[in-house]
Design a protein around this nucleic acid. Structure first.
Lengths: 147, 147
DNA sequence: TATTGTTATACTCTATAACTATA
DNA sequence: TATAGTTATAGAGTATAACAATA
């Protein structure tokens, strides 16, 4: 195996994996706290976020966008349906697929929840200059292969 | 509540939280796969990583460095003790505390596992120039408040 | 045969809290 | 009283796999 320099991981401040884990934990806990004041939690956030971006996705499409397993999506949607925030509708052309739509109540939550998520991100970005924040977002997209 | 611009979160490529989640998932799954080829998994990684940095930590100190609950640390150490990779030793000055040390076998794993973790990080950093990679690490430390 | 979605089972991680032994 | 660590219990998330209905 190729041998890499240890200073890519030690001290831990040099490690991409550790930094991402620290920031991910902070962001998730922060958002979870904010969501709980609105009767939600971090478990339903990726699904709602995806639907606020685009309604009418099938469960398979939703699972992909949430980076979660299809059986996890099944249960998250059960929860959200019980909360009357989303509804499953028959797909217009495929009788085995379901399309997921927001209820009126689910749509009304959008603005206040997104504001909380934005405030949450802003807490960390505010430690950087505006130019640095732009650079960080750009480099993260490049590293993650999302752009 | 203060109202922030939605373009801090939509499209999702603009969102710090989403980017961190994507990269965190990729990094964790990648490392987990690599660890499994060596009889380990992502669950024991933060503990071993901390001990390879510094031995003799108490369980409370280990829990802090792993950003996990003290009862989770208890169970992870049970697992690692059964694998004969670590051992609990009485603390020299406090009879209620325990110090955690690596066994010979735990020490021998260090190099090969760290190389895998480094290779894992490198996969993502290699999408960036050397200068960009340095900038990314620096900005992540600044955003996470770890520097 | 493959795809969409549901369900069963088990395992891990997390959360709350009770418990012991020490300080 | 507070701290270090263990344990019980319950709730989520994840993984594997089996299943029904449909394509």
């Amino acid at each position: 195996m190729t041998s890499y320099a240890e200073d890519l991981i030690l001290p831990r401040h040099n490690s991409l994996g550790w930094l991402i884990a620290v920031l991910g934990k902070q962001l998730a806990e922060d958002l979870d706290q904010r969501l709980k004041t609105m009767g939600l939690n971090i478990g339903v956030w990726p699904t709602l976020f995806a639907l606020w971006e685009e309604e009418g996705l099938t469960q398979t499409e939703l699972a992909e966008r949430c980076m979660t397993a299809h059986y996890t999506t099944t249960r998250t949607l059960d929860t959200l349906e019980k909360m009357a925030l989303v509804e499953r509708r028959p797909h217009p052309t495929s009788r085995r697929a379901l399309q997921i739509y927001l209820t009126q109540q689910g749509k009304e939550l959008r603005h206040s929840v997104l504001q909380q998520a934005i405030a949450c991100n802003k807490q960390y970005l505010d430690r950087l200059s505006q130019k640095e924040a732009q650079t960080l977002i750009q480099l993260l997209n490049k590293a993650a292969g999302t752009r």
